[in-house]
Nucleic acid binder design. Structure first.
Length: 366
DNA sequence: AGAATTTGACCACG
DNA sequence: CGTGGTCAAATTCT
């Protein structure tokens, strides 16, 4: 299947093919009576594919074995990863691009017990959380995380939470993530991932992890605020807690969420609706207001945790959820290849130019 | 009782 | 030296 292509080439081609495919779908949808959310989702997916492709072209260490190994791990060998596998910040968040370069070679450093992790490959996702739909806090990303710290950040209203993989010790998995609520929009959580999962507890083989439930988190925060911002945070959190609880109770009554498609191992009542409440924003400039997100569709994509080869809508949304997820990736690639091989093939592979992701205007793709 | 979280302290980096 | 990231003991949860 690979014909000796490098990982970059394969991924690049796949991304471009995907982008093309989604563009076609979008065209069809736009031509018909499509729903707004479908169109938006398609656009989002297209953008993502192209951005990834472009970033791959820009990949600084594409000649390095170390990097390649890491990439392989990221893009192909970790099909279960619910985290965005790419160490590239696809959303163009400044914080992720700056220390991206020196990242991989430091990957081992942190395993040698530095109290402050050196620069690591990291990338940020933004997760919109809607109180109207009930979920709060870090979304399900398919992995088990253990919180190991929380810190008030100077310029931020909200503290930053630090999570590491639950299986750090048992499986030597050094993936971590940071979750920070956006100042400007408290319904948005910026999730910064660092390192890739080496554990075998990806989303498809492992029960959906359970980040602290919204209520729990808020309660705890109220009890244990540290240092500055205390009053502000308490106000905010109490407010939010109130909102959440109202909504939650409504949801419990009326929203008996479709957990049949989900792994419903251990899902606690307040968390039986993980899919319906957040928009997943992968590019900094594109977001889906929750109102535009169809609840049922999200339920569908949530279920694709365990059903990668679902009908197209689900597949698509699965991709949205697990950015760069090799599940949907792999499922779709053969089809795409079989049908559209010729048009997406050659020119790209010979490209030899440099593109700075920062130069990519997200709008130019539109 | 074991697992997970909280939180103050420690430490590296800029 | 200030800030952010991590550690680890204490605490809370399941």
């Amino acid at each position: 299947m690979e014909g000796g292509w490098s990982w970059e080439q394969q991924t690049l081609m796949s991304e471009l093919i995907e982008g093309m495919e989604f563009a076609k779908q979008l065209r069809v949808h736009l031509g018909s009576t499509s729903s707004v959310e479908t169109s938006d989702a398609l656009v989002q997916r297209i953008l993502s594919s192209y951005e990834k492709a472009l970033l791959i072209l820009k990949w600084p260490g594409s000649g390095s074995t170390t990097v390649r190994a890491q990439q392989a791990n990221i893009g192909a060998a970790a099909p279960n990863c619910g985290v965005p596998e790419s160490p590239i910040s696809i959303n163009g968040s400044p914080k992720s691009s700056d220390d991206f370069d020196g990242g991989f070679k430091d990957n081992l450093d942190h395993q040698e017990n530095s109290k402050k992790r050196k620069t690591q490959p990291r990338w940020t996702d933004k997760v919109r959380v809607s109180f109207e739909s009930g979920l709060e806090g870090p979304h399900e990303d398919g992995f088990s995380w253990r919180k190991y710290g929380q810190k008030d950040i100077l310029a931020a209203k909200y503290p930053r939470s630090y999570y590491r993989c639950t299986y750090r010790n048992t499986q030597n998995c050094w993936a971590t993530k940071q979750v920070q609520r956006s100042d400007e929009d408290p319904t948005i959580f910026e999730v910064t991932y660092r390192g890739t999962h080496t554990c075998s507890h990806g989303q498809s083989t492992q029960s959906v992890p359970q980040p602290p439930s919204p209520e729990k988190q808020e309660k705890r925060l109220n009890h244990h605020n540290s240092n500055n911002n205390k009053n502000y945070q308490q106000q905010q959190q109490q407010q939010q807690q109130q909102q959440s609880q109202d909504i939650l109770s409504n949801l419990r009554k009326g929203l008996s969420v479709n957990t049949n498609g989900l792994d419903n191992r251990e899902l606690e009542p307040p968390f039986t609706f993980p899919s319906s409440s957040f928009g997943y924003m992968r590019t900094g400039d594109h977001c889906f207001p929750p109102s535009m997100l169809d609840e049922n569709t999200f339920l569908g994509f949530c279920s694709t945790y365990t059903a990668p080869s679902t009908p197209e809508s689900n597949y698509f949304l699965c991709q949205m959820n697990s950015f760069g997820d090799a599940q949907g990736f792999e499922a779709s690639l053969p089809d795409l290849l079989s049908g559209n091989n010729s048009s997406a093939n050659s020119p790209i592979l010979n490209m030899d130019f440099s593109l700075d992701p920062a130069e990519i205007d997200p709008d130019f793709l539109l």
